[in-house]
Design a binder for these strands. Structure first.
Lengths: 184, 184
DNA sequence: AATTTATGTCAGCCATGTTGACATATCAGG
DNA sequence: CCTGATATGTCAACATGGCTGACATAAATT
């Protein structure tokens, strides 16, 4: 039932780009990596999706509570930068997370217009539960890489990210440690 | 404007899991990789998104035309397995791609109920345009990895994918070459 | 002839993204 | 202190791309 049509011999058509086409294009498409990224990410987020369903949440909720948990005191504006979605989309899921007690707000000290966001114990528990699932998959994948494998993968992923206009969270991730800034 | 709230010293809260909590949990969350995957995939698909917009297409269209182009003769059922979406969702975008001449259908030889899918020249051009963009990013990222970097990354991504019940396309990707099967 | 399979299609729902407009509170500068 | 810029919240309306269930058709299988 799952295997129909096997007599029609399917073969990746990209093999033809093995022909060095007059030496004009120096970089043949990385079909393999492109597709592996698709499948890997699909299964990676799939882990969390199943659990989230039981909570009545979606991926959007996960992303919000995850970053709030990891970077306590994040403001709404920061979150918009990180997620690259609109205020509307964010406020919908953020409101639910606030109402259901996964996140709390606190007015900023220096600027009382800001709403600093913090995950509650409930929120942290959810984030950790999901991170544990995803970490299992990552550890499993890193295990059969030689030593230095994790470093190589980390370097690769960092290099895949756009560097122009990095937001606060991205800065922290890319350049490690807390962000020191001499304002105030 | 983009840098508000820097006096509230944000620091990843995951550092606390550096405390070996009574030695019970042998695997601390891989916060770094989890988040790098998010940012890397976001920017990776972002490349294609901009181009697709100009064509009036979305990510869904890209996935369909990509796999059809790469694995000519794919059936509708195969595509459903690969994308893991429903017939409805697929038929919506597939119809558009057929109508606009990016894909053509052909009845199967051995089973005339099947619709074998093929990308047209127009479809191939689009897929290659998008793949070129994504390949640029990948090449850039692989460049500053030592030798063997590409292999390591490939191994990692493969290991991130679920192995239970792999569909036809996944089989081809994971175990290389065409699928030989002794039916008929 | 009867059943199963591969596909297409219809109606409608939900989650999550978008825009634009507008209200409120607060900060910051003249 | 007033004024304008800023941070946030909210409303209405819409698009995309998932989903379900029901049903139709044609072709294969038994």
């Amino acid at each position: 039932m799952a295997d129909i049509n096997f007599n029609e011999m399917i073969r990746p058509s990209g093999e033809r780009s093995a022909e060095p086409a007059a030496g004009t294009d120096p970089r043949p498409p990385r079909w393999d990596i492109v597709e592996l990224l698709f499948f890997a990410y699909r299964d990676f987020v799939g882990d969390a999706d199943h659990v989230l369903e039981a909570f009545g949440f979606g991926r959007a909720h996960h992303r919000v509570v995850h970053f709030v948990c990891r970077y306590p005191g994040l403001t709404v504006a920061d979150l918009l930068d990180v997620l690259r979605i609109t205020k509307q989309s964010l406020s919908r899921v953020l409101k639910q997370l606030l109402d259901e007690g996964y996140i709390v707000q606190k007015a900023g000290d220096s600027d009382r217009r800001q709403r600093l966001l913090f995950a509650t114990a409930k929120g942290e528990a959810l984030v950790e539960k999901l991170a544990r699932l995803q970490t299992e998959r990552i550890d499993r994948a890193l295990r059969d890489l030689g030593p230095g494998g994790a470093e190589t993968v980390g370097k690769f992923l960092r290099a895949m990210i756009d560097r122009d206009d990095p937001d606060k969270v991205l800065q922290t991730i890319l350049h490690g440690g807390a962000i020191a800034k001499d304002v105030t």
